[in-house]
Amino acid sequence: MLPITNFILLSAVIFSIGAVGVFFKRNIITILLCIELMLNAANLAFVAFASYFGDSTGQLFVFIVMTVAAAEAAVGLGLVIAIFRNRETLNVDEANILKL
């Protein structure tokens, strides 16, 4: 069996890719995907620790997070559609009615 550190390092890498992507990607849908990466990095860490401890709480957490992520995607895509109807663009840099 692989040592636990491998899983944690992999999850840290995935989390970092997601977090960096949120700041550097300009398309709303790509940003949403990056946020999903962050959530799934946490999921990977949870299952790795759950298996390490032989404890089911971490696995339970993963199911809850997956459900929440699905709900989040539903709300996020709803907002994307509302914005696209008004603006015809999904670039966050063009969302500038409210000054930054």
Partner: peptide, 16 residues
């Protein structure tokens, strides 16, 4: 959603 992800990852490490 980003901050929820940050919070969640923190939770997973603390759980670990």
């Amino acid at each position: 959603a980003f901050s929820s992800g940050v919070l969640l990852y923190g939770m997973s490490l603390v759980y670990g």
